[in-house]
Simulated scan of single mutants.
Amino acid sequence: MTSRIEEPSRDTLIEPVDQRIGRHFDVLLEARGYRADTAQRAAIAHLGQWLEAFLAGRKSWLRRTAAGVYLWGGVGRGKSFVMDAFFAAVPLKDKRRVHFHGFLAELQVRMRAHAGQPDPLALAARELAGEARLLCFDEFHVHDIGDAVLLGRLLKVMVEEGTGVVCTSNYHPDGLCPNPLYRERFKPAIALIEKRFDVLELDAGEDYRQRASILEDWGRHCWPISNFVEGEFERLLGLTSEALRDVPLMVNQHPMHLLAQEGQCAWLAFDELCRRPHSSADFLWLSQQFRHLAVSAVPCLGEEPIDVQQRFVNLVDIAYDSGLRLQLGSEASLAELCRDTPHMDFSRTHSRLQQLSQVRPAMNGHSVIR
């Protein structure tokens, strides 16, 4: 595979790749007013060194160059920030940075285009490998047999075709697929990661998302919703008297009901989104059609069945990754909402929900944002 290298500027004409990665990391840190910890600096240095060896095709009789880097650690440790800095500085035109749900949806579309041919998954994976010399995969995780089959074989083809893969995940490779019902099917993929990838832990022990200086405001959590004056929840979303009410839609060939819609704003009930069998593809469709999404009557999630929890986790992931502004309405505080939730991915969901502005009703009828 021949890669297209970006034309370097005069200042970076002879700059080694690993130094370029490190310099860009420092520039991004300064621009955002962050200070990196030792684990983050070690990760960016390792990524730079790996990329330089990978692009040069460097080999030794002791060990071939790793096929990729698997960067894992707890929520909020800066994995996505490190990935952002690394990806932006990579001097390749044929590079891609993808998120879990959107990428799997794309892979399935590509597979359907090869329907009727032998092994559509392998054909789709080779097609992707031919388009990208480097694939950066954020929030890598595996929770069902379909994902296990797709991701396991995809990684194998990418490595065979010579595409570099950099993943971030909350889990060590051995913890990616804990469900015993289909863990055996994913064991070869775990072995591939542990054998062919550099596995790095990024864990400085602090959830950086909770630092007041870097909290992102990507939406609101309104509670207790029954104490808000009539119409206040809709006003916060941006709905007016012109909004359409009780809107039936067909999404991916099955029905979805909106409580209200106006322009780029949509309001749905939790029951509609998470208690009905909607897929990640449905949530992706919502993220592509709207920029503001409200979900009302959100219950205490620890009391919900695991399939309902999984849909909520997927919804929050997709909304967060796509830049969708989210507004939740519930009776419970965030602590009550998330208490005793057994879902293995909920630490990431909880961290993201903590970045929502907390909106409480006030005596004068106007909500108070904290």
Rank of each mutant, 00 (worst) to 15 (best):
L286T: 05
A212T: 00
I214V: 11
S330T: 11
I145G: 08
S9Q: 03
F312Q: 00
L356Y: 01
G175H: 08
V166W: 12
R10M: 02
Q117R: 12
K187D: 12
L244G: 03
S60Y: 00
F228S: 04
R235A: 01
R311E: 06
E184R: 15
M363K: 06
W267D: 05
L268W: 00
T168P: 13
R220T: 06
E7A: 05
M158Y: 09
E184G: 13
P173D: 13
V251N: 08
R220Q: 11
P188E: 07
C136N: 09
A39R: 10
R133L: 00
L337E: 06
S357R: 07
H221D: 02
D26P: 10
H101S: 13
D147F: 08
V159I: 01
L268M: 02
K187R: 12
V149K: 06
F137M: 01
V142M: 07
G231L: 06
D198R: 15
Q49A: 13
M158V: 10
T349G: 00
L293M: 09
K93R: 13
R97E: 11
I21E: 08
H141I: 08
Q309P: 11
E304L: 13
K195N: 10
A45F: 09
E6H: 12
T349R: 05
R185F: 12
P16R: 14
R245V: 01
V142A: 08
V368I: 14
V295Q: 11
S3F: 13
W218C: 09
D11M: 05
W218Q: 11
V90R: 09
G162H: 07
S367N: 13
V359T: 02
G231R: 03
Q117D: 05
E336H: 07
L55M: 03
H350M: 14
R325L: 09
P255I: 05
D271L: 05
A260C: 03
F233D: 00
